[in-house]
């Protein structure tokens, strides 16, 4: 448990963030991303605001494997270590679209509420 306080990733959005990270152009071609890479990517893009706890990352990845949204493959990583690389499946793409749409709906709705005078 760190001493720095960071905002938590809103519940339910972790799957969307992982799916989105894997769905970027170029990821598919480069053979996917490993767990650490996904966590780093989310942290970097969010400007160090969102930090993915490993305690939730790996269970989430396992769940996505079960659901069939991603597939995993062992490969050599950039620094010559064996690592598990995750890629999106077609089911995963569909799921991402669904999650983005849901999120947009909710975000718009929340925006209306908090901006109401």
């Amino acid at each position: 448990m760190g001493t720095t306080t960071r905002p938590e990733i809103p519940p339910g959005t972790l799957y969307m963030l992982i799916l989105k990270s894997l769905a970027r152009t170029g990821v598919e071609e480069s053979g996917g991303m490993h767990g650490y890479g996904i966590a780093q990517h989310i942290q970097r893009i969010s400007g160090d605001i969102l930090q993915v706890e490993e305690g939730s990352l790996y269970p989430a990845l396992q769940r996505m494997l079960i659901k069939g949204w991603v597939v995993a493959e062992w490969k050599q990583s950039e620094n010559n270590r064996r690592a598990r690389f995750y890629r999106l499946t077609s089911d995963g793409h569909k799921q991402l679209a669904r999650e983005l749409q849901d999120y947009a709906h909710v975000a718009t709705a929340i925006g209306r509420v908090i901006e109401a005078v």
Binding site: H34, G35, A39, R82
Partner: peptide, 11 residues
């Protein structure tokens, strides 16, 4: 595999 994946992460 899980063990290895986590050791990798840690490394």
């Amino acid at each position: 595999e899980l063990e290895e994946e986590m050791q990798h992460h840690l490394a």
